[in-house]
């Protein structure tokens, strides 16, 4: 007795409708994410672009002025000065974070006593918000009641307490140290996942072939971590280009406006000078620069592996 009928070949029509149903289900699954992107990213982005075409004061009626805001920012020395400072900071702090995070990732990758404790301790500053961390460091850096300067003075390292916020160099490097302390743990975790993704057999095979530790690092570890390094660098660069809290809270843009970042200047123009349209135009330019940097980074770091 025939227990069941053999499966019938699908007709093109039925296959098409099943495909459409599958696509519909797929669309439904991504719909919440699409909705979030539309509401919280694309809509504000379009609104910001629309604002950038207006003289849009915080108080009063906006007036359409076309591309005048963009023309103005092309000759705005303060904006380009802030952009140059942001670029300088981004390069320095990205290198510094990577230089600290990679050795830390190598250090905590190996199983040894207290590895978990090290990982936790190094990651701990990441969970503190940038605002809170900046407040903490502004106290630590205070020349009278802080920690660093009075301690250095009492230990005889300086002739008198040094005001770390008095000069550009001491302010800048203090903030770089703070940012490295705050974010190296996050980069360490990203790089650690990359390191743990490299098969131990590959390393073992290289060792059996007589490759030295240095050769294994440069010929195996680094090339196989391109993707992870790309991710860490892109996140670090994007975060640094958008730096604001630490320079606002710790240095207030000082001394003498020498540490005003691009976002700080946009904030100042938008909410202190009440020029929302101009602030929006600068934000659009900053976004374009950030997207370009990220695309270039992705291309540079992905091509060899993808090839």
């Amino acid at each position: 007795m025939i227990q069941g009928t053999p499966p019938q070949p699908h007709t093109p029509r039925r296959r098409g409708s099943r495909l459409r149903r599958k696509q519909l289900v797929g669309l439904l699954f991504v719909a919440p994410a699409v909705l979030l992107v539309l509401v919280f990213f694309l809509a504000p982005l379009c609104m910001a672009f629309w604002m950038s075409l207006h003289n849009w004061p915080l108080l009063g009626r906006p007036r359409f002025i076309g591309l005048a805001n963009y023309e103005a920012l092309m000759v705005d020395q303060r904006f380009w000065g802030a952009m140059r400072f942001t670029a300088y900071y981004t390069v320095i702090v990205t290198i510094a974070i990577f230089a600290v995070a990679f050795p830390l990732a190598l250090f905590v990758e190996r199983a040894r006593p207290l590895t978990k404790l090290y990982r936790t301790a190094i990651f701990l500053p990441v969970v503190v918000g940038f605002g809170s961390a900046s407040l903490l460091w502004s106290w630590l850096m205070n020349v009278d009641v802080g920690l660093f300067s009075p301690l250095a003075y009492r230990l005889g390292l300086t002739e008198k307490p040094v005001n770390l916020l008095a000069t550009f160099d001491t302010t800048f490097w203090s903030i770089v140290v703070m940012v490295v302390w705050k974010t190296a743990g996050f980069n360490m975790i990203i790089l650690l996942t990359g390191l743990q993704g490299i098969s131990s057999e590959v390393q073992e095979a290289a060792r059996m072939d007589g490759a030295s530790g240095r050769q294994r690092f440069f010929r195996i570890t680094l090339p196989l971590m391109r993707r992870t390094i790309a991710l860490a660098l892109i996140l670090s660069v994007a975060g640094s280009v958008l730096a604001f809290d630490q320079f606002y809270i710790i240095a207030d843009g000082g001394p003498q406006n020498s540490t005003v970042t691009a976002v700080y200047w946009i904030f100042s123009q938008s909410f202190v000078s009440f020029r929302l349209g101009y602030g929006a135009a600068m934000s659009m330019v900053l976004l374009a620069i950030l997207v370009t940097i990220s695309v270039v980074q992705l291309r540079l770091l992905r091509t060899p592996e993808g090839a």
Partner: peptide
Amino acid sequence: PESARTDP
């Protein structure tokens, strides 16, 4: 006082 220099 030195701290006055950077007091916001």
